[in-house]
C-alpha cells in the first residue's frame, strides 16, 4: 500500500517551545482518521504543517508521492489537500452562496477570470447545490458573519470541498457547537464527505464522536504520537487514557 499522505520525522519548535517532536503519520486513501489529544498536544500544529501554514523545523511531508514540505498553502491545496479551521475561516461580509462562489471561481480550471461574471446563473446553481449537500441551503443568502456557529462550521468545510480534495483535514469540526447539535453536524458532514469519497482526518475532543466516526485513531501527547490504530484499541490504551482522555475528557466516556 502506498500512502496518500506520509509525514515522517516532523519536528517543530517555536524558540524553546517544542510543538512537534518526531511525528510520523501515514494516511492511506479512503481512511477516516480521528486525531485526539489534550490542548497543546500538537494536533493543530500537525494539521498546520501538513497544509503549509507552518514549515516544520525538520522532517518531510509527502502527498501522493510528491514532497510538499516547503510548499505554500495554495500550492498544497491545488495538489488536493483541503482543510477546515477550528475558528471557521469564511468570508464574513459575503453571503453563504457567495462564499461558495469564491471557492468555485478560484477552483475554475480556466483560471481566475477578470471579466466572466462572478455570479453566473449556472455557477450559482452549483453553489446552492453544494450548500444543499451540507444541509445549509436555507442560509444561502445570509451574510456569513451573521450565521450560527454550526452553520459557519459546515460552510467552512463546504468551501474546502469545492476543489474536490483527495485528503481533507478538519480541525475540530464540532468545537463551539452545543452538545445537542454536535452529532447532527458531524452526521451531515460525514455523509456529504462520504458521497465525495474523500479521505478525512479530523481533530476532535469528543470521544463519542471519535468512537462513532473514526476508522482509525491517532493520539497526540506532548507534541508526538503516542498511539495509532483502531479506535477501540487506542481509546483503551493506558497511556491514552491517562494523558488524553483522563486529563481533559474523562466525562466523555461514561
Amino acid at each position: 500500500m502506498t500512502a496518500l499522505l506520509s509525514a515522517a520525522g516532523l519536528n517543530k519548535s517555536f524558540g524553546a517551545v517544542v510543538a512537534a517532536r518526531d511525528v510520523h503519520v501515514d494516511v492511506a486513501a479512503g481512511e477516516t482518521i480521528g486525531v485526539i489529544g489534550a490542548n497543546g498536544a500538537g494536533k493543530t500544529t500537525f494539521v498546520n504543517m501538513v497544509t503549509g501554514y507552518l514549515k516544520p523545523t525538520s522532517g518531510t511531508i509527502r502527498f501522493a508521492g510528491e514532497d510538499v514540505t516547503r510548499l505554500p498553502p495554495r500550492a498544497i491545496v491545488r495538489r488536493g489537500i483541503g482543510r477546515s479551521f477550528q475558528i471557521p475561516q469564511v468570508f464574513g461580509t459575503m453571503t453563504a452562496v457567495e462564499n461558495v462562489l469564491v471557492a468555485l471561481g478560484v477552483a475554475d480550471a480556466r483560471g481566475l477570470s477578470p471579466w466572466r461574471p462572478f455570479a453566473r446563473p449556472d455557477v450559482v446553481g452549483h453553489a446552492r447545490a453544494t450548500l444543499e449537500r451540507f444541509g445549509i441551503a436555507a442560509h444561502g443568502d445570509s451574510e456569513a458573519r451573521l450565521l450560527p456557529q454550526g452553520v459557519r462550521k459546515l460552510l467552512d468545510v463546504a468551501i474546502a470541498t469545492v476543489r474536490r480534495p483527495r485528503l481533507l483535514l478538519l480541525d475540530e469540526p464540532t468545537s463551539g457547537i452545543s452538545a445537542e447539535e454536535k452529532f447532527a453536524v458531524m452526521e451531515t458532514l460525514m455523509q456529504a464527505l462520504r458521497a465525495g469519497q474523500v479521505t478525512v482526518l479530523f481533530v476532535e475532543h469528543d470521544m463519542q464522536i471519535v468512537g462513532r466516526y473514526a476508522g482509525r485513531v491517532i493520539a497526540f501527547y506532548d507534541g508526538t504520537v503516542i498511539a495509532d490504530g483502531p479506535p477501540d484499541r487506542v481509546l483503551d490504551d493506558a497511556d491514552v487514557r491517562r494523558h488524553v482522555i483522563g486529563e481533559a475528557h474523562g466525562r466523555a466516556r461514561p
Binding site: 505554500p72 495554495r74 491545496v77 475561516q89 468570508f91 464574513g92 478560484v106
Partner: peptide
C-alpha cells in the same frame, strides 16, 4: 474578509 481562506482555496 479573510486572506487565509483565500490562500486555502488555492
Amino acid at each position: 474578509d479573510n486572506e487565509i481562506r483565500v490562500e486555502y482555496l488555492g
